[in-house]
Amino acid sequence: MGAALLSAGAALAPAGTAAASTTTTGGRVDYVALGDSYASAPLVPTQVDATCLRSSQNYPSLVARSQGATLTDVSCSGATTADMGASGTAGVPAQLDALSRGTDLVTVTIGGNDIGFSTVLGTCAQLTSTDPTGTPCRTHFTGTGTDQISDAIGRTAPKVAKVLRAVHHRAPHAEVVIVGYPDLFPDDGVGCTSKTVPLAMGDFAWVRDKEKELNAMLARQARRSGARYVNTYTPTIGHDLCKPTGERWIETFAPETPAAPVHPNATGESAMATAVESTLVRHTWHH
Rank of each mutant, 00 (worst) to 15 (best):
P244C: 08
C76A: 03
A275F: 02
A82E: 12
K162N: 14
P136R: 00
S7H: 09
I250C: 05
T123F: 03
T139E: 13
A227C: 08
R165M: 03
H287S: 14
P264D: 10
I115N: 06
A171Q: 11
T130M: 10
G268D: 05
C242S: 10
T128S: 13
T144D: 14
Y181D: 11
E256R: 10
G268L: 07
T24I: 01
F204L: 05
A10F: 11
F117W: 11
S129K: 14
Q148V: 07
P45D: 13
G246R: 05
V276C: 04
T22N: 10
L127A: 10
H168E: 12
P14T: 09
G16Q: 07
T135H: 03
E256W: 00
A205Y: 06
T252D: 13
G180I: 06
A20T: 06
P45N: 04
M201L: 14
D83P: 01
F141C: 02
I250Y: 05
T245Y: 01
P45T: 08
M201K: 12
G246C: 08
A18P: 04
A11Y: 12
P198I: 11
D183E: 15
S56K: 05
T284I: 12
G134L: 10
A275Q: 09
L241Y: 04
V44W: 01
T128E: 15
S87E: 11
S278F: 02
L280Q: 08
D73I: 01
P136Y: 04
A266G: 14
L199N: 05
T139A: 15
V163N: 15
I178W: 00
H173K: 12
A94C: 03
L184I: 13
S118W: 07
A273Y: 05
P186E: 14
P264E: 09
A94V: 06
T107K: 03
A8T: 11
T81I: 05
K195N: 11
K212V: 15
S21L: 10
T123Y: 02
S278V: 03
G91F: 04
A125K: 12
T245D: 07
A13H: 04
R54Q: 02
S37Q: 09
A18M: 03
D104P: 03
E269M: 10
A216D: 13
V108A: 12
G268A: 07
A216W: 06
A69L: 01
A86K: 15
A227W: 08
R224I: 01
